[in-house]
Simulated assay, not measured.
Amino acid sequence: MKLDHIDFNILRELQQDGRLSNNDLAQKVGLSPSPCWRRVKRLEEEGIIDQYVALLDPEKIGLPIVAYCQVMLEKHQLDQSDQFDRMIGERAEVLEYYSMSGDYDFLLKVISRSIKEYEEFQTQFLMRLPVVRSVSTSFVLKQKKHTTRLPLRFVNQQKD
């Protein structure tokens, strides 16, 4: 799907405030409401707009501990990786999960109520998985930047 500057403007505005009414969005991007609504629907149908969410403040709801753990599997076999995927996918405290290049196989972003709760996740669950060889954890001390907005200005500057 080819995106034009109006599509990028719509995406910028919705990344800033996903609760904008169609009328307000149309006004901000210089369209009338009907064409704006059609463009948003097309962006949704094409999967460019993946979902709309409410972003919560983890500390205010009692989840102040953020840990990044690097996991190395015992063997690099597809069935072990699939098993690990299934087990990690079921864990609500794992917010993000990436297959990585480098020294470790996976990177997990884990949130918890306390260091003790994280320690239980690691020792009682993660380290007990037969496919796991090692885990290395780093705790976030202070969040310096957090955004969910993609840098559309870089994408928009690409040449045809």
Rank of each mutant, 00 (worst) to 15 (best):
K2Y: 12
D4F: 03
H5C: 11
I6N: 03
I6H: 13
D7M: 03
F8T: 02
I10W: 11
I10N: 00
L11Y: 07
L11N: 03
R12F: 08
E13T: 02
Q15D: 00
Q15C: 00
Q16S: 10
G18S: 03
G18T: 02
R19C: 08
L20I: 06
L20M: 09
S21Y: 12
N22C: 12
N23L: 15
N23M: 12
D24T: 13
D24S: 08
L25E: 03
L31R: 00
P33Q: 01
S34C: 11
S34W: 10
P35W: 06
P35K: 04
P35C: 08
W37L: 14
R38Q: 15
R38K: 15
R39W: 07
R39N: 00
R39L: 11
V40C: 06
V40T: 01
E46D: 04
I48A: 02
I48K: 02
I48C: 08
I49R: 03
D50I: 12
D50A: 12
Y52D: 03
A54R: 14
A54T: 13
A54H: 06
A54M: 13
D57S: 07
P58G: 06
P58I: 01
P58N: 01
E59H: 10
K60F: 02
G62L: 07
G62H: 07
L63E: 01
L63Y: 11
L63W: 00
I65E: 05
I65T: 02
I65A: 01
I65L: 05
V66C: 05
V66W: 13
V66E: 00
V66R: 04
C69F: 08
C69Y: 08
Q70P: 07
M72K: 05
L73G: 04
E74A: 08
E74S: 11
E74D: 14
K75E: 15
H76V: 13
H76M: 10
Q77K: 15
L78D: 13
D79Q: 15
D79R: 15
S81L: 14
Q83H: 09
F84K: 00
F84V: 00
D85P: 06
M87E: 15
I88V: 09
E90V: 04
A92M: 13
E93N: 00
L95S: 12
Y97T: 06
Y98V: 02
Y98N: 09
Y98L: 13
Y98A: 12
M100R: 15
G102H: 05
D103I: 06
D103E: 10
Y104A: 07
F106Y: 15
L108V: 04
L108F: 06
L108H: 10
K109Q: 05
V110F: 09
V110H: 01
I111V: 08
I111T: 02
S112A: 15
S114W: 03
K116A: 12
E117R: 14
Y118K: 04
E120W: 07
E120Y: 12
Q122L: 12
Q122E: 15
T123D: 14
F125Y: 14
F125L: 04
L126G: 01
M127C: 15
L129W: 02
L129N: 05
V132G: 04
V132I: 00
S134K: 04
V135Q: 05
S136G: 10
V140R: 04
V140E: 08
L141G: 13
K145Q: 10
K145S: 10
K145W: 11
T147G: 11
T147Y: 00
T148G: 05
T148I: 06
T148E: 05
R149T: 14
R149W: 09
L152V: 01
R153A: 14
V155N: 11
N156H: 14
N156M: 13
Q157Y: 09
D160F: 10
